[in-house]
């Protein structure tokens, strides 16, 4: 025997529930309307279920315990914890300028330039702001003002600062055994981020990442890394010497800190 059609009341109940849930098609709504028109019992049933749904929908929202979010946050370890590098002051973040500009003529190609913006948006796609050094090095071509030599277990190299017009250029040449995070205090020095250009790398792209957060530029590196960071004067173009704090961390622990003047 073939499957029999659902009993009218069972079908009506299905349609009434679906109506409450906003899941009826136009045809089903017409079918339900016809059923309701001919049955006072179904209309009463519809009213009861609607009332029940309304009661459920109107249950007051519960407020989580005030400390719940902090309890959760305290327990979560993110993949790469941020080092405790305390630097005063916040700085506006940056948005990409519409055009790419070549810095230090003859040295760079395809370097994205970032301009100062008032909006605060920590997330930014940094993939576009990495350029390539095609010859030489900025430190050779520009006027070097200061430098730091780094030699600690697992990390060696130099960081120097030079000038090119109104732009400061930090030149990194580092070799690290473990993954390191370099933190540059842009806001503290009242400088804005202009771009990054890599000159040499023994690592892969996956081993290099760049991020700006709360007035600091953070770069994660591993292996041999030679790159330049271009900094713009954020406020008046006063040309005053700036002190730029640089911290380097490995596995969240500080391994080097220094200040460049330029």
């Amino acid at each position: 025997m073939k499957d029999v059609q659902a009993r009218p009341d069972a079908r009506a109940m299905e349609l009434i529930n679906a109506e409450i849930d906003g899941e009826l098609t136009r045809e089903e709504q017409a079918e339900l309307d016809a059923m309701l028109e001919s049955s006072a019992d179904l209309r009463a049933m519809q009213a009861e279920l609607r009332n029940l749904a309304s009661m459920l929908d109107s249950l007051p929202e519960q407020t989580p315990p005030a400390d719940l979010a902090n309890r959760i946050l305290d327990q979560i370890q993110l993949p790469k914890s941020e080092p405790a590098f305390s630097l005063a002051g916040l700085f506006g973040l940056f948005k990409p300028a519409p055009t790419a500009v070549a810095f230090a003529a003859g040295l760079l190609v395809t370097v994205g330039v970032y301009e100062v913006a008032s909006e605060r948006d920590v997330a930014m796609d940094t993939s576009r702001m990495v350029g390539t050094m095609v010859s030489g090095s900025p430190s050779q071509a520009n006027n070097e003002k200061d430098s730091l030599a780094i030699s600690v277990p697992g990390l060696s190299g130099t960081v120097s600062i030079s000038e090119s017009g109104a732009m400061r250029i930090l030149n990194f040449d580092l070799d690290s055994v473990e993954e390191t995070e370099i933190v540059i205090a842009l806001a503290e020095a009242q400088l804005g981020f202009g771009g990054i250009a890599r000159a040499a790398s023994s690592g892969t792209d996956a081993e290099q990442s760049y991020r700006i957060s709360e007035g600091t530029l953070r770069m994660v590196n591993q292996g041999r890394q030679a790159f330049s960071v271009f900094l713009l004067e954020a406020a008046n173009q006063d040309g005053e010497s700036r002190k730029i704090s640089i911290g380097i961390f490995s596995d969240g622990a500080p391994v080097f800190s220094g200040v460049l003047r330029g």
């Binding site: 989580p64 719940l68 979010a69 946050l73 993110l78 993949p79 914890s81 920590v122 997330a123």
Partner: peptide, 22 residues
């Protein structure tokens, strides 16, 4: 952002979803 270790993104996630989940 959370996967990249962005603590602020994590805070956004927790504070945004704690209410409905709770």
């Amino acid at each position: 952002r959370c996967l990249n270790g962005d603590r602020q993104a994590l805070e956004t996630l927790v504070r945004e979803y704690q209410h409905p989940l709770y």
